[in-house]
Design a protein around this nucleic acid. Sequence first.
RNA 1: GCCCCCGUAGCUCAGCAGGAUAGAGCGGCGGUUUCCUAAACCGUAGGCCACACGUUCGAGUCGUGUCGGGGGCACCA
Length: 565
Amino acid sequence: MMTPGMLRTELERILESSVRSIWGEIIPDDFHADVSGSDNLEFGDISCQAAMRLAGIVKDNPRSIAGRIAETLTDSIEEISSVSIDGPGFINFTLSDDYLASAAFDLASRGLQPLLPDTGAGRNALVEFVSSNPTGPLTVGHCRQAVLGSTISNLLEASGWKVSREYYFNDTGRQMTLLGESLAARYLSAEGGEAAVPEGGYHGSYIIDWTADIRAERGTGLTWESDPDTFIHFAEEKAMQMIRSDLSLLGIEFDRYFAESELIPEAVTDAIDKLSSTTVEGRSLVYKDDSGKLWLRLTALGRPKDRVIIRDNGMYTYRMPDIAYHLDKFSRKYDLMVDIFGADHLDTSRDVTAALECLLGRKDVSEKLRVVIHQFVTLIKDGRRIKMSTRSGDFVTLRELINDAGSADVTKYLFLTRRAEAHMDFDLDLARKQSSENPVYYVQYAHARIAGILRTAGEACISLPDVFSSGISKLLEGEYERELMRLLESVPVNVAAAADAMEPHRLTEILAELATGFHRFYQHVRVVDTGSRDLSAARLMLCRACRCCISDLLGILGVDAPDRM
RNA sequence: GCCCCCGUAGCUCAGCAGGAUAGAGCGGCGGUUUCCUAAACCGUAGGCCACACGUUCGAGUCGUGUCGGGGGCACCA
């Protein structure tokens, strides 16, 4: 079977060898004849710009170059019905009706996934995301990251990777102490005592809610002074419960929750040893200053500043366990590791990467570690920006966001219509108000319509063709059929590109195109017609192909594909 | 102080490895239903792609700079 991706690869190979056979060694070794989709029907379906690039190299004008290349291509690929030279020197290919129909047939009978390139080939990938510390409920920002991470994971899985989803969290250190102390203060107040939430502590009302639970489960009479660990562990457990339940609202599950404490002390000590025994330009990568702090010499690695990794009180700073954690990931032999971080982690992430490159080799790290940084979300409510902070208790939770937006599906889809690295204004009022005209409903409606057609066809006892024959493509020669088939054929290629770039927002673009393509088709073409059963079956096949693409893609986004609306 | 992101239609944003007439949704205006879901479709208005210079046969796309907007970073994580 020739998949759309294979067709393009084959076309590029033929173009390249044709170029080399005409011009020989003048052509540089790294020359690559790439093809891309034409955006205008009059320029065929696939186009190649190689001739324009070659103009400077072979000293000829692009149109004549294109002509010479095209001459050698005649009839070399049966999927191509015609080749033309247009504009300044584009070589444009028109796909044959048989091929387009067979591509749709493949989608209809097998679904999208088998047609995607098997990039992962069963290799292991680890995606780390959310990784919010257990100090409170997940917020809007985490929501964006959760949606991004889970979609990227799903996309990798669809491309043949075996994906583990991992959540890393800090369960030691000052933050957890502050959380426990905040709970202790609320607990004491609940018992009638006087206590203030500590400086820098957590003021969220959810902590007050926990006091009833801790009194029920652990009794009364506890004090922070005598039982700090009880408070800390109780709070941590409660917070993790909240987080898991928030994630379940989005339908997201992790394979592993990796606690920082698993790294302490051995893994962190090992990491420090490794750093200490590494020298750059004759100097050790770590050094101690007069006050006893241990510094990481990041300036030797091209970073702007050295950073403290152990404070004078002996506690690690954030970077140290994070380096150890990444070393642990590398030791688990993944072929690909993806970190998904908010913009606030940028500096740290670069420092960690620099340290890893030094310890493990630049090549290994740059090949295997991909960092996706997403910008923050600004919430707009009643026309005003909302400032958020977990500590002050002044934030909008993921749960509230989903309630306000109307559903988890709407929330997920809207987050994925923007590039990760773009700032995002999420207007709550608008999300809710527009919910009936939302892009997600537009796409889901297309799916529901197709499901309706399939039901009607079932009642009329019209079923899909079992095997592909060119008789089918003869029935699909109308402009709306061809337009839809052309679109369907490009889907696997475009999804593969989104996966390679790890840009899930492109999937919502593809979905919107598919929905538009289908709605147009639907408007102009009657599918179920008992008067011409063969034609109905052929058109039904297109509907089915469309449905497969839409439901598979919505599946990757984690959005429901309803059969009725 | 250092760093990141953004500046494209009235609004919110796409524009995939620079390429052929700049796209979508929402909003505006005007149409379409004896027929598988009108949450749809069709038409129309609306843009010196912030600005300047540079690289190129060719720049919304790459580089440098300017202006404007958003945000982040500190031995908190």
